[in-house]
């Protein structure tokens, strides 16, 4: 059974058409990388799955139910930046996720309950490799460590879907490699379905089990905003052979559209 179904979704802001005719299904456990030129609507699609934007036409179904039109616990998110709370330490940042649900009035827990949440938070903090920095505030962490923290935070709610909006875009190449390993481990261990927007097409290939390429199919030179982007390639990347074919298509595509 498919986990997420994108059923003929169109999105426009006023006269500006962003996305059109998206018809896709995603199964549980897939890792979808989304690539495309800037401004082609990949982040917009991510936001629609997240619930902070709604489709102009069509709908997105999660387990055959229309997806909630506001962000909730079913979908975790890691943004490029501002993903963690600056006024809380690493440990508090992760613990707050369970404190929200355990204490709907105060948002704080005490005693036994607090110890239980702390143990759970610590296990996720260890899993992302931040065990040595539990008492630090986010501004004392490097960019990579902040992203690790954001991932640990999102994992606390064991969401069905994890959304990554250019999560490694601001990191150094070396650190980026470490983060790739981490996210792959997290994906396998927690049986997540991941959607990742990235500018780095190589990253999309390395991480994803499926690659979506966004591009405009229809053009009107007199009205460049009249038509939106569609998904021009939907490539499975699970076998070696698919990887290779995918790479060739992508390389051609990169030269044409992304101009990297």
């Amino acid at each position: 059974m498919s986990l997420l179904k994108i059923d003929n979704v169109w999105k426009s802001y006023g006269d500006v058409q962003i996305l059109e005719r998206l018809k896709l299904t995603v199964n549980e456990g897939e890792f979808v990388s989304m690539v495309g030129a800037s401004g082609c609507g990949k982040t917009t699609l991510l936001k629609m799955i997240l619930g902070s934007e709604t489709a102009t036409r069509g709908q997105i179904l999660l387990n055959d139910q229309p997806i909630s039109p506001e962000p909730n616990e079913a979908r975790g998110i890691v943004f490029q930046k501002y993903s963690v709370f600056p006024h809380l330490t690493v440990l508090q940042n992760v613990m707050i996720a369970d404190e929200f649900s355990a204490s709907p009035f105060l948002g704080r827990c005490f005693g036994q309950q607090k110890r239980k949440i702390k143990d759970k938070a610590m296990s996720f903090i260890e899993a992302v490799g931040l065990g040595h920095a539990t008492g630090k505030y986010p501004h004392q962490l490097s960019g990579g460590m902040q992203q690790r923290l954001a991932i640990a935070q999102a994992l606390m709610k064991s969401p069905k879907i994890l959304l990554l909006d250019e999560p490694f875009g601001a990191l150094d190449p070396g650190i980026r490699k470490d983060m790739h390993q981490l996210i792959r481990k997290v994906w396998k261990e927690n049986k997540l379905t991941i959607f990742m927007v990235t500018h780095d097409i190589q990253e999309g290939f390395e991480l994803g089990s499926r690659l979506w390429v966004f591009d405009k199919v229809r053009h009107d030179p007199q009205a460049p905003t009249a038509y939106g982007a569609q998904i021009t390639y939907d490539l499975p990347l699970t076998t070696e052979k698919q990887q290779v074919t995918g790479q060739t298509i992508a390389e051609k595509y990169v030269k044409k559209v992304v101009n990297l």
Partner: peptide, 25 residues
């Protein structure tokens, strides 16, 4: 807005966002 959205994906209600995310900041 990322901070407020993040809090919602962690399960916070409007009230909890107000007292645990916005108020201290």
């Amino acid at each position: 807005s990322e901070i407020l959205i993040k809090a919602q994906t962690l399960g916070a209600s409007t009230w909890l966002v107000a007292i645990r995310v916005v108020l201290p900041q």
